[in-house]
């Protein structure tokens, strides 16, 4: 293998992982931006998405079916969670929301162990996504290419949703100044529920897509949440573009680190996070003027 082939392979790998990070982190960032809630249970939604996706895929043998339906199920869980537990706390201190979502994460993680057991479960790769694609100098596993394309489609969709729809306008305005939007007569609480559902759904997309890459295990949620925090903080809390930049940076850093600096690779992400915060306290693309940041 030539050096270019290796680098291209790592690059594709990093972008694919980065896309998964983006799908999780953008929901985390949206929820923080609009509601000021640091959602510790967001990683659990990703994990439940993966588990439910595994079950649906096992029963139906249709990967796309799982990918399309599971996010709606998880979005439904998100709505229930937001409506019954977070909603009574919006007038309270954000630290209580952290504590609440921390408790919810405990419940979700244990609930998954009750239903699916403690062991890591393998998530088969659909046949039409097996094998590799030859392109230029490199061989790219078909599934990673699929994950990259999926990430692009979802992020373009989210971008259009935020930038081109009336509802997206409310979300962006609410992120900037929630009180003002409320004074304009917009039902911000309903927007909270919808944004929470969108975030949960995107986490579930990532969960289902991650299944065939990493298999499915009970600690995947708490591992993901910490990395998603790093992504969001590097990119800038509450910033959509920031999440994308942060996710790709972290994905690539991990992929290259795994190849060149094996025993340090996972630490690099957090080192980057500290450096970014010290140099640019509001993240690479964060807005220091925004309401919550």
């Amino acid at each position: 293998m030539s050096q270019t082939t290796v680098v291209l392979g790592i690059l594709a790998n990093g972008v694919a992982i980065g896309m998964l990070f983006f799908l999780v982190a953008s929901g985390l960032s949206l929820v923080f931006g609009l509601m000021g809630v640091v959602n510790f249970a967001h990683g659990s939604l990703y994990m439940i998405g993966a588990y439910v996706g595994l079950t649906v895929f096992d029963r139906s043998a249709l990967f796309l079916f799982a990918l399309l339906t599971v996010p709606f199920i998880i979005a439904g869980i998100g709505v229930v969670m937001e409506y019954f537990t977070l909603r009574p706390l919006y007038d309270r201190d954000p630290i209580y929301q952290i504590l609440l979502t921390f408790g919810l994460a405990l419940m979700f993680d244990e609930g998954v162990r009750v239903v699916w057991g403690l062991n890591s479960l393998s998530f088969g790769r659909p046949e039409w996504l097996a094998g590799a694609i030859s392109l230029a100098d490199g061989q790219f596993p078909r599934y990673r290419v699929f994950v990259i394309l999926l990430g692009i489609v979802v992020s373009v969709g989210l971008y259009l949703f935020l930038e081109r729809t009336r509802f997206g306008l409310v979300v962006r305005a609410g992120t900037n100044n929630r009180d003002m939007v409320e004074l304009c007569g917009v039902n911000v609480k309903r927007a909270f529920t919808i944004v929470f559902a969108v975030g949960a759904g995107m986490a579930a997309v990532a969960g289902v897509a991650a299944g065939p890459l990493f298999s499915v295990y009970p600690a995947m949620g708490s591992e993901m949440i910490i990395e998603a925090f790093a992504v969001v903080v590097i990119g800038g809390l509450g910033s959509f573009r920031g999440s994308l930049v942060g996710a790709l940076a972290v994905g690539l850093l991990q992929a290259f680190g795994n190849y060149y600096l094996v025993s340090f690779s996972s630490m690099l992400v957090f080192a980057l996070m500290i450096v970014v915060l010290l140099v640019r306290p509001h993240g690479l693309l964060g807005d220091p003027e925004a309401g919550h940041t």
């Binding site: 640091v38 025993s263 340090f264 630490m267 957090f270 996070m273 500290i274 915060l277 010290l278 509001h282």
Partner: peptide
């Protein structure tokens, strides 16, 4: 000294990152 350069959520996140580095350092060595 490093974390206190930031405030609020950002301070919290830097302390989280340091703790995580400690965890990974122990786990991987």
């Amino acid at each position: 000294y490093l974390a206190l350069q930031a405030t609020g959520v950002y301070f919290a996140m830097i302390t989280l990152a340091f703790a995580q580095i400690g965890y990974l350092a122990v786990f991987e060595n």
